[in-house]
Amino acid sequence: MLRIEHLGKQFGPQVVALQDVSLQVQPSEIVALVGTSGCGKSTLLRIVAGLEAPGTGRVLINGAPVVGPHPAVGFLFQEPRLLPWLTVRQNVEFGIAHLPAAERAARSAGALARVGLADFAGAWPRQLSGGMAQRAAIARALVARPNLLLLDEPFSALDPFTKMDLQEHLLGIWADDRHTLVLVTHDLEEALVLADRVVVLRSRPGRVHHTFHVDLPRPRRRTAPDFQAQKQRLLEALGVAA
């Protein structure tokens, strides 16, 4: 699905954001990227999305090098980034303007229902709470039916309840659609709840430090002893826990 080969990226003469990062992601896999702030996670995701040009190396999606935003790739930003002049429904339909109206309406209604916002289709973004706005953004990312969804700390600004709720949501949608997810997060529990594989990046220069397979059956319960054991192992891999 996604192949990142020896990717490097430098900003100016000083900042080496990424160096020789290689990563392969299988179809329907969920990969979490974790690492300290400034280690290049967002940069990596933006290059994969085609929003930023790679410095060295290359990124292949289904075998083809990425040269710009790809129709099969969706991006969920850290902020909802809803367009304030469009209603919630119009925002959700923003990326599928090329489809016939009936198809658009059906898809956006489905996506809004899936994130529990069916009653807010006609609302303006300013009328939504932060969690609702982020759910609308999820709906917008999903109506285009991406094969690969990139998520940059999508839930980090939310309270723990909304966050867990949206994680459940995302997993539910993933169970139906089986798209590939690459997710940046600072939250190790989030990584363990969602991901098949956790990739730890190290900073300056940003490179892959460690890859961690999560062998837990779904649905995963945070309180289960084996979940806690995995968390302990991950912390050790990060060099945090003694």
Binding site: G116, F120, S129
Partner: peptide, 11 residues
Amino acid sequence: LAVRTAAPAAR
């Protein structure tokens, strides 16, 4: 899935 999520803080 959606039923599980009550809309929080509906304005």
